[in-house]
Simulated scan of single mutants.
Amino acid sequence: MSSLADAAPRPAPPLTGYAFGAAGAVLFASKGIIIKLAYAEGIDPETLLALRMAFSLPFYLVIGGIAIAQMRAKGEALPGLRIVLQSLFVGALGYWFSSYADFLGLAHISASFERLILYTYPLFVVLFGALLFGQPIRMKALWAFAAAYSGLALIFAQNFSANATNTVHGSLWVGAAAITFALYQLMASRLLKSIGSALFTCIAMISASVVSIGQFVVVRPLDALAISPHGLMLAVMIAIGATVLPSFLMNAALKRISAQANSMISTVSPVVTMVLAVLILGESVSGIELAGAAMVLVSIGWFTLSDSRRRAIR
């Protein structure tokens, strides 16, 4: 006769958490590749962003509705108008403007270079946290920032010699995406404490969806939606495969492994993007670009690991 202990469900092995985290990182890494393929189909950034948000919107509407129902069932007070408005603004900043700037940048630079620039956003979180919110800044963050951007400078110089205009425009747009996403992270962290992760994410994504679709209506004719079936499939892949699904996988990973482990797994994202760019897009990678990428990966990976350990012992 089995005991109650034997009958009790066993916790999921950590390997499952690592698998979820790696899968989420790989799917996030695929975003730039899919966007490049969509551009090759003749889809412009505004149309592609609107389609991405429109296809992902139903998921967040359902999840948001479930979150509100659960709060009511527990007798918890719903967030006030002020917090909702702040969440709408922060969502538009992080998921509309940052995404739009990233989409614009990808029209000018390679997918692998774009991913490396975005990968430096944790350093901007530290810098803006110190400048705007009075958070302490440590010397290792400045060293990591210097090393990462030295690596990016190598790649920038390599691309600048081949196509100066595109390199400058693309780097500026993706840099703006990294900066605004860092600001989003700082402002969102304050709202998450009072509104909850699930509901905040849904409000933020709904806000970004409305703005993205509104932008399309203003700047593009409706016949821009008449894209090829393959282009439509790519838009669905960005919405589901590179937006909704990886967000669930990352949350599932965080339930099974530490945030520190999940952060380190995310370092595979730029590497995967570079490999996919070579295999699918036919992008070439020079020795200088590999050296620059290594500097970025090592510096940000080291900073993320050390910062996670420092937070863990608090």
Rank of each mutant, 00 (worst) to 15 (best):
Q185T: 14
F248Y: 15
V211R: 09
K36D: 08
L232E: 12
Y184E: 07
T201L: 13
I206E: 05
F103W: 09
L48R: 06
L116G: 04
A25C: 08
L232C: 08
I313F: 03
M71D: 10
G65D: 12
Y149H: 15
A198F: 14
I68G: 06
F124V: 11
L78G: 10
G214E: 05
E289Y: 00
H108E: 09
L232H: 12
A92N: 10
R220L: 08
Y100I: 05
T267K: 01
L232T: 09
V62Y: 14
A12T: 15
D44G: 13
A291V: 14
V271Y: 05
V126G: 07
A7P: 02
A224C: 09
R311C: 07
D223Q: 15
M139P: 00
M1I: 08
V174F: 01
Y39C: 09
E289A: 11
L276H: 04
V272K: 06
S150L: 15
G80N: 10
I35P: 03
F133S: 13
M264Y: 02
I313K: 14
M274Q: 04
T47E: 11
A7Q: 14
F59E: 10
R72I: 08
G292Y: 01
F28E: 04
A146F: 13
S110V: 08
I35G: 05
R52Y: 10
R190S: 15
G91M: 07
V219Q: 14
G292S: 10
L123N: 03
F216N: 12
H230F: 10
A40T: 12
M1T: 11
T267H: 01
A148P: 03
A111C: 09
A291D: 00
Q260W: 04
A242E: 13
K31F: 02
I265H: 02
V296L: 06
I240T: 09
A146Q: 09
A312Q: 15
L106K: 06
D223V: 13
G65L: 08
P9R: 09
A259L: 10
L118E: 02
P14M: 04
T180I: 09
Y100K: 07
I66L: 15
A312F: 05
S171D: 01
M250P: 01
L152A: 07
E289I: 01
L37T: 04
I288D: 08
A294H: 01
G65M: 11
A144C: 02
A19S: 11
L254V: 05
